[in-house]
Amino acid sequence: MRPFLLALLAKEPAHGYELKQALEQIFGSAYPSPNIGQIYVTLGRLEKDGLVRAVDVEQSNRPNKKVYYLTAAGRDALDAWAEEPAEGPRVRDEFFMKLVLAPMTGIADRMTLINRQRRHYIALMRDLNELSERTDPADRVALLLIEGAMLHLQADLDWLDRCQEDLS
């Protein structure tokens, strides 16, 4: 969540609750809404690292609120985050480990593992299909996220075919 908060603060200074609302508004249902506690904990860490600073703003008939703003170091950290390519998906996942180790342990043969995994992926795809039907068509961000998950799943399934061809 650190880079998200830095990005929001680069736009304008804000207090914790405003940041929570902004995250909800931008990501819609595409990102699980963080609770306010998580946001304050993260802000505290960013402050300790010198990436944000807080000022107390007096409020009439309410306790002071802390408004956070980005420091120069925070701006540099945000730029570095934005410029760096994101990590690709992992291929050496748990299934791959099972596939490699299965014959040594005698727990299951590879064909059975691959077939079971395929069924699981297709069930996952059905779930994503239903999720995309339920999602508001105006929520572009959420729909793109679902489509991304579907494309990844399709690649996983194609790769299972390759495993089955080569290991049989």
């Binding site: 990501f27 819609g28 249902s29 595409a30 990102y31 699980p32 809404s33 998906p89 996952l124 994503l128 999720l131 999602t135 929520d139 959420a142 729909l143 996220l145 679902i146 991304g148 998950a149 990844h152």
Partner: peptide, 9 residues
Amino acid sequence: TAGDVVELR
């Protein structure tokens, strides 16, 4: 919701 996709992947 779509938020679960983050978790799914």
